[in-house]
Amino acid sequence: MRKFKCSICGYVYDEAAGIPEKGIAPETKWENLSDKFICPTCTAPKMAFQLLNEAPDQTTVLSTDNSNKFIETIAELSAGEISAICSSLAKGCEKQRLTEEMDSFKKLADYFKIKTTPIQQNTTLHDIIKMLEKDLNQSFSVANKAAKANADRGAQRSLMWSEKVSTMTKSLLERFTKEGDLMLKNTNVYVCDICGLITIGDTPPDVCPVCKVPNFKITKIERD
């Protein structure tokens, strides 16, 4: 009997146990679960589960190579990046109760947000799916390796959250392209203020399944 772990919230499906309260009998094999099976705690789709490997992770070799010190000064930050850096620093100032500084960073963030390159008017949600595929198939693993090799816990933490959020968004987008507006017609949409996780349902989760913040930090997105 095997176990499968939800890559979003960490819930473990145990084949031996099943989920009797959801009508899934003990000893129900993973492949015999419906494709519509969703995580009972965070509603992630079946594809978000991974076979739980009991073997421990291999330890990574530490490297503190910083020979490319010149790279960042040369590679200019884009307007979009500066905007996100400034809006994040505004939040930092808010935590420090520095109101004037917070407002100033917000002004910079707004200025650079407008300066970002405009998007073609015929873009669709498919374009986001394509970018998410690249993030999930390539960019996250490169970044995870770099963060691990340098024992950068902060970067690893940010990547763990955003990788989960990206996986969830991609699965929601794929469902949306099939089901269209019906998918969300009679339900609410929520976004976690801290990690950005999008959840759909009648009520927000008590705590965010990804970053575990309580739900006063989860915002309902209104339909206008």
């Binding site: 503190t64 190579d65 910083n66 020979s67 490319n68 010190k69 790279i71 960042e72 590679a75 930050l77 884009s78 979009g80 990046e81 905007s83 996100a84 970002t116 390159t117 405009p118 998007i119 008017q121 873009t123 669709t124 949600l125 374009d127 986001i128 970018m131 998410l132 690249k134 993030d135 960019s139 996250f140 490169v142 970044a143 390796k145 770099a146 963060a147 090799a149 340098n150 950068d152 902060g154 970067a155 940010s158 990547l159 955003s162």
Partner: peptide, 28 residues
């Protein structure tokens, strides 16, 4: 904390991507 260049560059690739996705979503 001092950030290593490999970490900075990899984070920036993802940061850029997320900023672009934000822009597309906002346009839609």
């Amino acid at each position: 904390q001092i950030k290593m260049d490999t970490v900075i560059m990899a984070q920036r690739v993802l940061g850029q991507s997320k900023v672009q996705q934000e822009k597309i979503a906002e346009t839609i």
